[in-house]
């Protein structure tokens, strides 16, 4: 590679980084603007919008609501996903391929289609739009990720670990809880954080399945329709911070084995 091409490659790389981060930086910057309107010029800076967000009980409760949904749907997905992964890797039965296809399908179905069908289905079941419906909807979407990640991890578990546990007197249940589950933990932490972020971020399913109480993305969307204000930027910046910290923590936890 000549010096010129290397220079050009580096410039393309940095241009890409700028392209990624300029919108985010602008969003954060606008959250500090001392004015009711988003846009340049910025005459003076203020922390008022952030203070406003932290003191706004409505926004805090929406944060809490989204958070509850994220945690609950992730918990459900972790249990079902691990269960499915165990079934798909350890057991042999007829129709295994079909079960695998069905479990992973929600990951590839377009959000809007799955949202509408879940809405119809949950009403058939008698679940009213609201928190429960959203939690279940998010869980359905998260299960494939937990299943796939767990399956990959399970496939790397040496068979001898399971055999050694049985050899020492453990039945299947004890083997699962004392040997296999601890082995799965790093994968489950990673998958769990990913599912929480996906749930936190989800708009379509939350919009279709939600009741009167909005999740954070639905709330932000509603706010946008009545006009942009730097408060939205402040909220978004806070979300960005939380998700970035969570994502990086997950990454570190996973790398530490």
């Amino acid at each position: 590679m000549t010096r010129h091409t290397r220079l050009i490659m580096q410039m393309i790389y940095w241009a890409f980084v700028l392209y990624l981060f300029i919108p985010l930086s602008l969003m954060i910057l606008m959250g500090f603007k001392d004015s009711n309107f988003i846009g340049f010029p910025i005459k003076s800076l203020t922390l008022d919008w952030y203070v406003g967000v932290i003191q706004d009980m409505e926004i805090l409760s929406i944060f809490g609501y989204s958070f509850t949904i994220a945690i609950s749907s992730t918990a459900i997905a972790l249990v079902i996903g691990t269960w499915a992964a165990m079934l798909l890797t350890k057991a042999s039965f007829k129709g295994k391929v079909i079960l695998f296809a069905l479990i992973t399908l929600p990951a590839v179905v377009p959000g809007i289609i799955s949202a509408i069908s879940l809405r119809i289905y949950s009403q058939t079941l008698g679940i009213d739009p609201g928190m429960m419906a959203v939690i279940l909807g998010h869980a359905v979407h998260s299960v494939p990720f937990v299943t796939l990640v767990s399956m990959a991890r399970l496939n790397s578990q040496p068979l001898s670990h399971v055999e050694a546990a049985q050899d020492l007197g453990a039945d299947k249940l004890v083997t699962f809880f004392r040997i296999t589950l601890p082995y799965l933990v790093p994968a489950l932490i990673g998958a769990g954080i990913f599912c929480m972020l996906t749930s936190f971020d989800d708009f379509v399913r939350s919009f279709f399945l939600g009741g009167y109480e909005p999740t954070l993305p639905v709330y932000i969307f509603a706010q946008l329709r009545t006009g942009m204000s730097p408060e939205i930027n402040a909220i978004s910046a806070v979300v960005l911070l939380i998700t970035a910290v969570m994502g990086l923590t997950a990454e570190r936890l996973l790398r530490r084995k």
Binding site: P158, S160, H161, E163, I179, Y183
Partner: peptide, 14 residues
Amino acid sequence: NVNMVFQDYALFPH
């Protein structure tokens, strides 16, 4: 009532 020492030892890593 027999126990096995495995080829890869199969020690529980955690």
